[in-house]
Design a protein around this nucleic acid. Structure first.
Lengths: 345, 345
DNA sequence: TTGAAAGCGATACCAA
DNA sequence: TTGGTATCGCTTTCAA
């Protein structure tokens, strides 16, 4: 007890910080620390009377649990990491929002990491994240360096890849096929009778892959009059405008422009309007992603709809299942996509 | 030593997880655990030879530090929490991106919390965050409930408020004055000779406050012909369109429309274009925020520029100073704003 | 420059 | 239903 007192003393001396501990609560409630712990984590394993006493002590002291200590002891942090290319890209931010809200409901918090910054190697990012011992990780895409794969697999925690599909995921994957999208857009465009196609694609791995697939497939429809345009990676409206300017400069004058994001498509639309080019009569536009604003605002833009709410929630559910029951129904889940035709393309 | 061996045995038995510990590294390097710890945290306090041995052992074992244990022992988590209304709102996401990158460089990670979801009380969110024992917290806005203030202050950690200004911050604040912005926009509009003003404001606390200040100030210029329009909080293009539709329905036909965000302003522009209303000749538009896309893309939209990169970095720097040196130069930092006039408003 | 011992604040396991 | 005790993996303090 003397020891306990001296500990107390030192604590308050060190700082007045929120160092109310389980022990303080236990003492006030007249029970043991483990009982307080149970009252917090498994309230129904504690007698109602005891629970009341403990809860009173908790609110009297303003106790805030220390998840560092809890996580260390239990090896469960209730922390999930999510690695996305960029937080300022709406499509990723939205997916993460659905992912997070699902996990929050289940009592987890999400730690975000941005991989889109080459200055910081993805490996360093993953190391930093693993050092917090998350219970699971969400990854964007399937292209991880060998070092990253090693690190991730060595951690032996549930992993969910998203935004792509592969028969050989690291663990489980919830995504869609960029190849099939490229082909579907090609088929759509061909079926609509277009013979001249322009592209405005971000210099992003997956965008480039969709474009390649699109072009290959167009060839099988006999469509080879293609004007390609590549713009730097973070897509924004201005780059969409530039994209169309380049296509026009390169001789593209009418037909359909396929863009690698709705933002680019929107930029193309703005540029077309500013030049009094009629959309979709002279130039039709196809986007990608189905950003939330698109449907109501641009009746003239077709797009590829990715059900991001579903992807986000599903990724969360799959991860939770792996964490809590170690279950996996399917390792590979295809959330699919849908071509949304708008206007009179 | 026998004890140490038995511990080993149990560990590997429990799971094959990344449970390489400092002890494992120390054993392999033939030094004590504390030396490995020093090699990691204060490399220059360790002899070069020892350092080399340790580093070799670290890479051989694939050791990943456990920050739960480290944070528990040192009371420093190298974790900073940031609470923003929504991750899908570009203005907040951008600010956080600058904030994060600065902190990442300094060896910290950022834990994001979204406060814009009334289902989860802000107090619960703050509790959840505090239970991870962050070294500091960024808050958006200055309106916190009494309970939240109590929780935050009890934690006794550095706090930085942003996106607003007050003479009585919880700790330090880096922001700008919504009141002065409202007045400045009013002065700007009056100086340009407009006599009829419409507003499209999100039903958001700060947006509403700017609108109120704007209108009050307009009155001092003798401008009272005001048509107000309020739209639900998460601003998007469609709501901007709706905003203009309402103004027109309410009899507004020409003049200037002041919007509470650039997104709304953009929506107003789209609606105007679709009705063949000339901008800015018939209707001029003023936005807010200076979203990155605005400058290049909409030469016809004026806006209020908030230097978000600067605000984000400054918030990070101030927090770092408080955390690492316990220094505060100024408690209140006004990052200001600037009215950017575009087109021939 | 290096190490031994004592926590940090919680939970797991086994008894009572 | 409740409690004692031994960790979880690291850093701090104090010595050597």
């Amino acid at each position: 007890m003397a020891q306990s007192e001296s500990r107390q003393g030192r604590k308050s001396a060190r700082n007045g910080n929120s160092s109310v501990t389980l022990e303080d609560v236990a003492r006030l409630a007249g029970v043991s620390t483990i009982t307080v712990s149970r009252a917090l984590n498994y309230p129904d394993k504690v007698a109602a009377k005891t629970l009341a006493k403990v809860n009173r002590a908790i609110s009297q002291t303003g106790y805030v649990p220390n998840l560092l200590a809890g996580g260390l002891a239990s090896r469960r942090t209730r922390l999930i990491a999510a690695i996305i290319p960029s937080i300022t890209n709406l499509v990723y931010a939205e997916t993460i929002q659905y992912f997070s809200s699902r996990l929050n409901d289940a009592g987890y918090q999400v730690l975000l990491g941005e991989s889109g910054y080459p200055e910081q190697s993805e490996q360093k990012l993953i190391s930093a994240i693993l050092s917090r011992r998350p219970d699971g990780i969400l990854l964007t895409g399937v292209n991880h360096s060998a070092d990253c794969r090693r690190l991730l697999l060595a951690a032996k925690i549930p992993l969910v890849e998203t935004w792509d599909l592969t028969p050989t995921p690291l663990d489980v994957i919830v995504g869609f096929s960029h190849e099939r999208i490229g082909m579907a857009v090609a088929d759509f465009v061909a079926a609509k009778g277009y013979r001249r196609v322009g592209t405005v694609s971000a210099s992003d791995r997956r965008a480039q892959f969709r474009e390649k697939t699109l072009i290959d497939r167009l060839a099988t429809h006999g469509i080879t009059d293609i004007t390609r345009g590549e713009v730097p990676a973070p897509t924004d409206l201005h780059r969409g405008r530039i994209g169309l300017v380049r296509l026009l400069d390169d001789g593209f004058s009418a037909g359909v422009v396929c863009c690698s994001s709705d933002t680019l498509a929107h930029g193309v639309l703005i540029e077309a309007q500013s030049r009094a080019i009629r959309v979709p009569e002279e130039i039709a536009i196809v986007g990608f992603g189905d950003q939330s604003f698109a449907a109501d605002t641009f009746p003239a833009l077709s797009t590829v709809r990715i059900d991001r709410p579903r992807m986000g929630k599903l990724a969360a559910d799959v991860l939770l299942a792996r964490i809590e029951d170690d279950t996996v129904d399917e390792q590979v889940i295809d959330v699919g996509f849908e071509i949304v035709e708008r206007g009179t393309t």
